[in-house]
Write a protein that binds this DNA or RNA. Structure first.
Lengths: 140, 140
DNA sequence: AACAATTCCAACTTAAACGATAGGGATTGC
DNA sequence: GCAATCCCTATCGTTTAAGTTGGAATTGTT
């Protein structure tokens, strides 16, 4: 039961981009990769997903890079994770349609537990915005 | 981000065993596997871990099988999962020692989020006992 | 015009984990 | 003796995650 590195790296990249977006400064993949010690090739693919989802905007060519596509308070961790993690639910049968098709579904006494776990994770992620994280780090 | 089938199957097996333990009835692996539609070979290895951890006791030979090793109220889901899931933490650096050794640890602004997610999961699992699950299913 | 810095895109590789199977030994009740 | 069981270990196939590579397109700078 692990968050994939995609999700982790994506969140960390978003934090770096957010910290530079105040002054309209575009950050390059190489800069982010160097700062966060992440393979830049891999990071590229991650950020490309974030771009498609509208969380960042890009500028090509020299002095290009990435900048936030929305306000930090409008970007929550659940949305980021949903785009990056291939499986956001802790178990497939959280999804009702999957559950209905399950061989065992009238008999599965454990499902309520999975739903609770899943809800707990979602709540934390949904209730944490990029703004929260930045603010929290500036406090110290 | 998925619970492995080990954890899922283990919890479901424990529920079956618990339901039979009232009347001191031993349940065989084959019975559990058939009821839950799980490969019996695979289930065997899972239950063997549960046995080593003391959650179930076994009896060999004909009419043998498994029975609870503790009272349902003394078995919580976190303990079961800890034994079965190879990685119970949602991210390695939840562990302080791993965190201290991390290249990036003075710089990692996302860790608080991982800690929160992890805590949320642990809370649900720790606050749900086998007794809770059985009771919850009898209600209906 | 040349060049360097960048985003963009797709194919490939490698390593690990998951889920499962197979085979056989030991114990017990009938 | 035999069938039902637990017990143990080795092996296997598939999928997925993680990361690499190579190259095209765009843009600013010199």
């Amino acid at each position: 039961m692990k968050l994939s590195t995609k999700g982790q790296y994506g969140v960390r990249a978003m934090i770096v981009i957010a910290e530079n977006s105040n002054n309209d400064k575009y950050v390059s993949i190489n800069d982010i990769a160097a700062k966060e010690k992440i393979s830049s090739g891999y990071l590229e693919r991650i950020i490309s997903k974030l771009k498609k989802a509208g969380f960042v905007k890009s500028e090509r060519g020299a002095n290009g890079g990435y900048i936030l596509g929305k306000k930090p308070k409008d970007i929550n961790m659940f949305d980021i994770m949903s785009v990056l993690e291939d499986n956001i639910d802790v178990i497939e049968c959280v999804d009702v349609q999957v559950f209905e098709k399950c061989d065992n579904h009238c008999n599965c006494k454990a499902r309520k537990l999975w739903l609770k776990v899943n809800e707990a994770v979602e709540n934390v992620l949904k209730n944490t915005t990029l703004e929260d994280i930045i603010a929290d780090n500036n406090k110290k």
